[in-house]
Amino acid sequence: MNYLFIMYPWEDIDPNADSSLQLIHEVASRGYKVALTTAANLTIRDCMAMTFAKVLKNQDKVSKSVNSFYKNAQFKEEMLPLAGFDVIFMRANPPLDNIVLNFLDSVKDDVFIINDVEGLREANNKLYTAAFYDPKNEVIPATHVSKNKEYLKRVIKESDSEKMIMKPLNGYGGSGVIVLEKGASSNMNSLLDFYISRKDGESNYVILQDYVEGAELGDIRVLMLHGEPIGAMRRVPAEGDARSNVAAGGSIQKHTLTAAEKKLCKWVGPKLVQDGLYFAGLDLIGGKLIEVNVLSPGGINYINKLNKVKLQRKIIDYCDDVIRSRESLRSRRSELRKAVENA
């Protein structure tokens, strides 16, 4: 098997917390070919999608310690065709560069891409939850997205809640998430100006979302594989912070999904599979779906430690099964075509 990870630079990895590293280590442990690249290293040569990749050198024995594996990993630089890989993992941090998807379009019928190109187009930012029809806001908090400052001010004013969540459309890791209180309306203009305005004269989209009671206690991160939950954890905000993301200083706790949370996962799962979002992270608060993370969902390390499991094995097993199934279908089709041709 040949695996390619389109991600952030190897040097930026925190070996104690990085989910991509867990996946890479699992692939290498199986003796498969592993290559890493970044979006900036994708290229076209003779009308063929290629990449300047770092190929992991074969090791006689892959260390069981992820930290040791990371520390001792050695690479060689190669220019390789994307179509030569069996699996391509998209693990780049948001926001998504749509040019990357243009490169992948040319190989999407030949390579198993996780997540699917069209799914990533639809779901790479926080607008995706709008695809889930929930007119009574029973599962998804009332959400408003706009660049229009006057409209956003009106939404805040007309809200029945004393608090709302504001965040940038393309943020990640909890960056830019704040709690708005109606009592601080004198600061509203400057806050909206800050979030909407850009130095290049363009403007950013801003999300306003009803505050869900219990948010101060943290959120639940659920990892979904082919529409089914495979692990979860509670993320608790640092004192004085509204954000529960670990990257923003939050802490983690063991969590067992409640019946209501399992029901929500069952409700979301088929849509994820339909859109080719085979590996995703759901963020839940108070039994409601806040976000769907599809680019580089994290939490594998933490859930593993809290529950003494190895989720990366399930994920790579799933990819291997998909490839074997595809190869079996291709082989059968080839045999059937020969039967027809020899008739």
Results as ranks from 00 to 15, higher is better:
V111G: 05
L96R: 05
N125A: 07
N115I: 03
I88A: 08
D116R: 09
F85N: 02
D105A: 13
E77N: 10
K136V: 13
D97V: 09
N98E: 13
S63Q: 06
N102R: 15
F132M: 10
F89Y: 06
M90I: 11
N93Y: 06
Y133V: 15
K64I: 09
V66K: 02
P94R: 05
L96H: 07
I88G: 02
N67W: 04
F89N: 05
R91K: 07
T129D: 03
V111K: 02
M90A: 01
F75Q: 00
N137L: 06
V111T: 02
M90G: 01
E78K: 11
D134Y: 10
K71Q: 12
N67I: 13
N115Y: 06
L120W: 02
N102Q: 14
A83V: 11
P81E: 08
R91Y: 08
V117R: 01
Q74F: 03
M90H: 07
K71S: 14
F103L: 14
L120A: 06
A92K: 04
D134S: 15
L96M: 15
E122A: 10
L120D: 00
A73N: 04
D97R: 14
I88H: 00
N124I: 08
L80C: 06
K108V: 09
K76V: 13
E118M: 01
L101E: 12
D86G: 02
A131S: 14
S106V: 13
I99Q: 13
D116K: 02
K76D: 11
N124K: 11
N72I: 02
D109S: 15
F103C: 13
P135W: 10
S65H: 11
